[in-house]
């Protein structure tokens, strides 16, 4: 019993150790993918805005009031339509960010134990719509910023809204944890076998088989990467009436930005590596890949290279 317990602890420790070493060795590829994702976000917004401006310029019958109506009700409808632009840009960005799971998969399964930035495009091409769909299940809590940036002067006194916000944060934190434990393997699974439906089945199988390890590993992950910004958010909510008007607010906001960068640039690649390692190391009944062309890693290994024999 004791032996089994220590094995689980060491598995969690190994998950972090191996993932951290691979992140250090491949940080350029992960960083480049993230920067490219942000660039894609800006490019999509620029293109969409450019198209709108072009329509506006080429259509003389359109007036400025058509883009930003005078009536408040019309304006609301227009803004909802305009919201499509950032949503599209966001989904493109997240699609690229999720390609880090492809990079992680490449490290663990290609046999060469390293990856390159250009591989992200292969995975994006193969799985982009699946990654975007999985964002709705696994990613929203990760990418939505904490309430630190939303605390305003109106909440400078204690009110029921403060308590509500804190409750909302705690619930969000717990829901995200449960989602991560249950569905963290869906993305490595979709990268490995290509079928979205089967990825959920495999994820559930992994939970049934190794739920203790998942809870421990993702629990520690939460303490390291998610909890700091969460705690800071709560602290700010509680101390805002006292700190309002002082330099401390600026200090806390700067710390919050640093924590968000840390979460995104270190936490997210670690999430990809840990999830992929768990998916690869757990023994369970796996689905066969749809075709070998679903997996860019296989294309590289089997088609481009001839295994030497003379």
């Amino acid at each position: 019993m004791i032996e089994a317990k220590s094995t689980k602890v060491s598995e969690t420790k190994t998950d972090f150790k191996i993932s951290w070493q691979f992140l250090k060795a491949n940080y350029k590829s992960f960083l480049a993918t993230e920067l490219f994702a942000f660039l894609a976000f800006i490019v999509v917004i620029s293109i969409m805005m450019g198209i709108l401006v072009l329509i506006f310029v080429l259509s003389p019958e359109l007036a400025l009031s058509d883009l930003i109506p005078d009536r408040a009700e019309d304006r609301e409808i227009t803004f909802r339509v305009w919201l499509i632009i950032p949503i599209l840009a966001y989904l493109t960005m997240v699609g690229f960010l999720y390609c880090q799971f492809g990079l992680a998969y490449d490290i663990f399964t290609s046999g060469d134990m390293f990856t390159e930035f250009r591989k992200a495009f292969s995975y994006f091409k193969a799985h982009w719509w699946k990654y975007i769909l999985l964002t709705f299940v696994t990613g929203f809590s990760f990418f939505i910023p904490d309430n630190i940036t939303h605390v305003r002067a109106e909440t400078s006194h204690w009110s029921s809204s403060n308590a509500l916000l804190i409750t909302f944060e705690v619930i969000r934190f717990l829901i995200f944890f449960v989602i991560l434990v249950v569905f963290s393997s869906t993305i490595p699974s979709v990268t490995a076998q290509g079928n979205l439906k089967n990825s959920f089945k495999e994820s559930i199988r992994i939970v049934k088989k190794e739920w203790k390890r998942l809870v421990k590993t993702w629990g520690i992950y939460f303490l390291i990467f998610i909890a700091p910004s969460f705690v800071l958010s709560i602290v700010l909510q509680l101390t805002y009436p006292v700190l309002v008007g002082t330099a401390w607010i600026t200090v806390i906001r700067v710390i919050a930005i640093i924590l968000q960068i840390y979460k995104l640039f270190v936490g997210f690649p670690m999430l990809a590596l840990i999830a992929t390692r768990i998916y690869n190391s757990v023994e369970f009944e796996r689905f066969k890949p749809l075709t070998k062309y679903e997996n860019p890693s296989k294309i590289d290994n089997e088609d481009k290279i001839r295994v030497g024999s003379i």
């Binding site: 190994t14 490290i107 663990f108 399964t109 046999g111 060469d112 390293f114 030497g308």
Partner: peptide
């Protein structure tokens, strides 16, 4: 990797083995 790909292409080297490490990493 690129040098190895070139060497593999002309059958100067070969992939001698592929094995899983104890940490489930393909080598």
């Amino acid at each position: 990797k690129r040098h190895l790909d070139d060497l593999l292409l002309y059958d100067i080297i070969r992939i001698s083995k592929e094995q899983l490490s104890e940490y489930s990493i393909m080598m």
